[in-house]
Design a protein around this nucleic acid. Structure first.
Lengths: 205, 205
DNA sequence: ATTTATATTGACATGGTGTCACTATTGTCA
DNA sequence: TGACAATAGTGACACCATGTCAATATAAAT
């Protein structure tokens, strides 16, 4: 009666275990094969379930990956929740630099999964929509930070906060992909520093 | 004898015509259906050729689109070739604003094709590589412009030109996609102005 | 023990792809 | 001109992944 979650069946338990097996198998295969090359067959084989089973728990490959994305997404959302109430340009710069570092470090630590996401974004509109959520939340958060700075006389007010926020976010996002794919000889640190200086020198008074 | 191009067969001519028919049909279908939903079947039907014919002229869907991309790519390359020798911050700002406008205007005028490219980039690594060429060329060009400005005492020299160039390009590219997909109420003009001001105020002395 | 509810299963229909052996067309040369 | 060569075009076919569904297995309830 108190057990509010659900009918605490053994059935339900079995179902949850199967689902979990599928998710873990999917993770392994995705990491090994990438999104495109992964087939349901491979996943159910590793998970040791029947073919149709995958479809009773998930709507398809996309859905499987989306669930796996959610962990990583949370890390990004956490960045948006960092408080931002600087009282000077210098303080703002320090705080922003920290955020950029955090952002880039997620890219590094989750590199392999991020590669899969990147591939899957182009292949699945559902996954794309999921990523769009991250974008939206982070841009929203940056917009708030800029607005705060403007209202407290720290930042120039002649530009629309949201337009500036997008510009800033895009630079971050794209550099993040560069880091994921190791496209650069330049250190993560120097990138963070450079883009932060450009941003804060343009925006803050 | 003088006809250096090739064996001036009627065969060769016929072949060229078939190829052209396929390209035109592909263009129509791509615009109508998008990349993913387009099938070779649809293309060859519209082009009035046999199924296998498409494969003798092109390696597949990707290849067809890549050839169609080349026209548009040229427009982007043209931007990179615009000369840039400003003698003051103000002049630099004007010139850069012009470039941004041009860049955005391509997005607008080629909107439908750009949408197809965008979709296809995620689906085909060959097409992705093609787009990467555009990125590379434009970033290279911006890097040169920054270096010139630094060497002539117009721009700060404490930042690596290439890092700044990437940051700038990414903002442009991402906003361009927004324009392509009409994601914004804000005018193209205000976007161009905002990002240019941010960029030049940060970089130029 | 019987019935009901839920979970699992794999065979099947579907649809697109790329290949390849074959046909058709055009050019060449004796 | 007729035979042969070279090139272009063709569509049937094998392949493979997907998602569905009717059937089956397992657990719960009575």
């Amino acid at each position: 009666m108190e057990n509010a979650t659900k009918n605490q069946d053994g059935r339900h338990l079995r179902s949850k275990q199967t689902r979990q097996k599928l998710l873990e198998a999917a993770r392994d295969i995705f990491l090994q094969e990438g999104f495109q090359n992964t087939t349901i067959k491979q996943i159910i084989k590793l998970a040791n379930t029947g073919y149709g089973t995958a479809y009773t728990h998930f709507t398809g490959k996309d859905d499987l990956l989306i669930v796996l994305m959610e962990d990583v997404m949370q890390k990004f959302f956490d960045i948006a929740d960092i408080s931002f109430y600087p009282s000077s340009k210098e303080e703002a710069r320090r705080m922003i630099l920290d955020q950029v570092h955090t952002f880039f470090q997620i890219a590094e630590s989750e590199r392999d999964m991020m590669k899969v996401f990147s591939e899957a974004m182009g292949l699945s509109s559902a996954i794309n929509a999921k990523w769009e959520q991250i974008r939206h939340k982070l841009i929203q958060s940056i917009t708030n930070d800029i607005t705060y700075s403007q209202q407290h006389g720290l930042a120039r007010s002649d530009l629309k906060a949201e337009l500036v926020a997008r510009q800033w976010f895009y630079a971050n996002e794209m550099y993040q992909w560069e880091i994921v794919f190791n496209r650069h000889g330049v250190s993560l640190d120097e990138i963070a520093k450079t883009i932060t200086i450009m941003y804060t020198d343009a925006l803050y008074l």
